[in-house]
Structure formats: C-alpha cells, structure tokens
Design a protein around this nucleic acid. Structure first.
Lengths: 231, 231
DNA sequence: TCCTTACATTGATGTAGGTCAATATTTCTA
DNA sequence: TAGAAATATTGACCTACATCAATGTAAGGA
C-alpha cells in the first residue's frame, strides 16, 4: 500500500536521516513510491539467500540483523532502531546477503525498490551522500567491534557496551534493547558468561539489575576503567 | 605535486574503480586536483587523532589499517591493495579516526582533499554510487569477520583465510600479503597459534609452507571442511 | 492474576588458545 | 655473501570462558 498519510510528520521518510533534509513535496513523492509492511515479534523480514530487492527502512519498532551458522549458532550483527535501514547491499551489488533480519517487536517497515532507489539517488544526489554518511558510521562501529572482540576480554566488552548504552539513552538507568542471549551473541560470548559478569558487577556495587532488562549504573568511573582493560 | 603524467593509463585515478568509468578528460581533471605522496615500508600515513582531511587512494603498494590499544596490542582491520581507498570517514563526518595507516612496502598514495571530493561527488553523482558500492562490500567483509571471530575457532579462521587468498590470487600457490604476526592480529589470534596450526596443516598434508610467506595448498576439500567447523 | 513459556542464573568441569621464554630460520642490508 | 635484524617455531604452563545440566525468575497472554 502506498504511504500517503495526510500529516507529513507521520511519513516514514520524514524520520529517516537521508530523506529528512528534502522539501516536503519531495518527501511526499518518495512516500508515494514506498511500500509499508508491519511485522510482529519474531517475524523474519528476510532470510539468507532471499533475492534482495528492497531497501528496508525501520519506521517503528526494532530489527535484529544476524548471521546463522550451521551449528544453529547465531551471530547478532546489529540492532536497528527507527530511522535506520538495512538491505542496502541490494542497491549496489547483485550479491545475496548471508544474513537474516528479524522483528524484535511490532515493527513497521518502509520498503523502496532498488530501481526506484537508484533513480532517486540520481535525481537527488544528496541522498547518496547521506547514505554514505550512515555507511561510514556503521563501518566505524563494525571496526570497533572487531577490535574489541579480539583484544578485550568479556568483562571489558560488557562494560564498554553498558557505557555506550548509557550515552545513547542519556541516562544511568538503562534498558537493554535485547535479551541477554542476543546481547551475548552480539558481544561474542554466551548467556551464561554475561550473567556471571553482570552479577559480579552487581556484587561490586557497580551496577544494579532489576528484572531482565533494567540496569542502573552506579559507578561510571569503575566501569570505564574495566572497559579499557585488555586481555 | 600534481599528477599530470602524459599517459592516462598511468594516472592513479585510472586505477580506481570509482573513477575509471569516467571519460579520459574527466580523469585528467581529477588527477589535476589530486596530490601524490610516496612512502617507504613502515611509514605511518596517518595516526589516530590526526585531523583527517583527505581521501587516500592506494596507487602502488600496500597499506595496513589498524587500531592500537593501550597495551600496545595491535588489531589489523584490513590490508589495502592498489585501487582501494581509506580515510573516507573524513568525507562525511567530522570525526577523527582511531585507526592508523601504515605502508607495508614502498607505496604511492594519491590524495584528494575532502572539499574537492565533495565537489566531485556533486558534479559526478556516479562517483558517490561507486563509493557506496565499495562501502557495502567492505561492510559485508567486516560483518563476515565479526561472525567468524566469535563463532569459529582459530583453525577454521585460518582455513577460511587461506581459501579466500586462493580465490583472490587465483592460484593454489599463494603468497601471504603480510607477516604471520599481522595475519594473527587480523584473525584475532597470536603469532604462535598461527604457527602451530599451520604446522599441523602441513603435517596433515593439507598445505606446504616455503619460507615465511609462500604457502601451497594441496587439499582444498579438507581445508574447506575445516573452514566450516565451528566452536 | 494465574500460569505458561521464555529467559536467566548458578555450579561443575574441560579445553582452546594465550603467555613467556628459548631457539631456529629467513630475509634484507651493507 | 656474511651477518644482523626481523620473523617464526616450539615447548611448558595456565586461565578465561565455553559447555552441559539443573534450577530459579519474570513477563505477558488468556
């Protein structure tokens, strides 16, 4: 269905960093060529080897991007928040991805076909620049993760992650965006180890856990020191 | 110095995927706004925290991009071959990088200032598209590495790496592009472990090593099987 | 608000691979 | 082509973390 709400601020394209610098009528035009789809928790948005033809933009909700190995082991690559996009490889290469995208909650996705997107990028060169900007940030994040995975021990990685979250959520009372299982996968470790280390942090008075997702950070300094420790 | 060789095929811009689709006079024009610099083995091209103002394109030689941790431990992120570029974050964000770039051998670099590059991208929208294409491939490679670092054991990672190299060099007699030390860093392990595993492979008759850099692959099948093994 | 199911914790145990240190080999330079 | 410097190998030892399994806790649908 075409996305033609009366109110521009409700358009998904208005939420996306690489469209929201355009004029309103331009955004409406883009909204018209985009399709919408709603998923519930656990829905697979695309699977490895699916022919990839769309750029997917998260409008509402959260999406988990991961790889799946033969053993059934999952590697979480990133969690997308509203305004972020995925499936971009479709736009530039013929490759199929070896990754999966799964809705973590009720999620509304805005899809734009590769051909239309290519056209758009030619028509509005600034769009490509905006995408480049996001790409370079993502590459930066990927590089950071690579470094941490091989140089820092699990404790440091968890500390580093909690601090990042604190920054992002602008509060010392943070809410984990995913289960500890997914978090473990993202940080290259296991549920059990995450659990043990966080209990340890709690015993040391650095943090306090409440329920499965809520974490209060008490001692930022110590956490910072731990996050810098290397193996 | 401006890059104004008489022969177009010698222009660095002619070697770079994101310029080489342009017309000859356009390439010449770009060559005129680019600077060249030659480095010898071990030279640092840029260091963490340096203000980053250029897009660097490898013309001749090879460049190692890495992070440096407090302990002095190094994480190799990628090795660039002629035609590949780095420093691209400079083009899109104000961030300084936390990475280092070092020449691995006598290397000639082509530099284009961020302002000029921005201008070029606006003038020739296809350039931005070409860069996007390389970016998405790089992101793909980074994701692959992240998955391997946390799911596969060292043996599988080495096997996987050797196979990639075989593909890239189109021969079963491959030459390691870096020292085993750098290779270890890239694969998230140590020199010693690499050494041990490769000796093991050799004893199993899967490969044969000659000198420090030459490796002949005898048993591709077995290597493939090993590369798929997970922890 | 119960109850089910998904999620998390805790304990016991094994091992891959890191570290340190000594030695060997290769490669490059003069 | 020797000889120094850079790289790599090998061995002994140790620990961080994965794994398996049992138990505990939380959250959301009916």
């Amino acid at each position: 269905m075409a996305c033609n709400h009366p109110n521009v601020s409700q358009l998904c394209v208005a939420k996306v960093p690489f469209f929201n610098h355009l004029a309103i009528d331009e955004m409406v035009k883009i909204a018209e060529i985009s399709k919408h789809h709603t998923y519930v928790k656990g829905d697979i948005i695309y699977q490895a080897w699916d022919p990839l033809e769309y750029l997917y933009i998260v409008h509402i909700g959260r999406v988990k991007i991961y790889q799946l190995f033969e053993s059934g082991k999952e590697q979480v690559l990133r969690i997308l928040e509203p305004g972020e996009f995925f499936g971009e490889l479709a736009l530039f290469t013929e490759k199929t991805l070896e990754t999966y995208a799964e809705a973590l909650e009720k999620t509304n996705i805005c899809m734009i076909h590769r051909d239309k997107m290519q056209q758009l990028m030619k028509e509005y060169p600034t769009i490509a620049l905006k995408i480049l900007e996001q790409f370079s940030q993502r590459l930066d994040a990927a590089d950071k993760l690579i470094g941490e995975l091989s140089v820092k021990d699990v404790e440091a990685r968890i500390a580093s992650y909690l601090l990042d979250l604190m920054d992002k959520q602008q509060s010392t009372n943070i809410i984990l965006p995913v289960t500890k299982r997914d978090l473990a996968s993202y940080l290259g470790t296991t549920q059990e180890t995450i659990s043990r280390r966080m209990t340890k942090f709690q015993k040391q008075g650095i943090i306090k856990q409440e329920g499965h997702r809520k974490v209060s950070i008490f001692d930022v300094e110590t956490l910072q020191a731990i996050s810098l420790e290397e193996m």
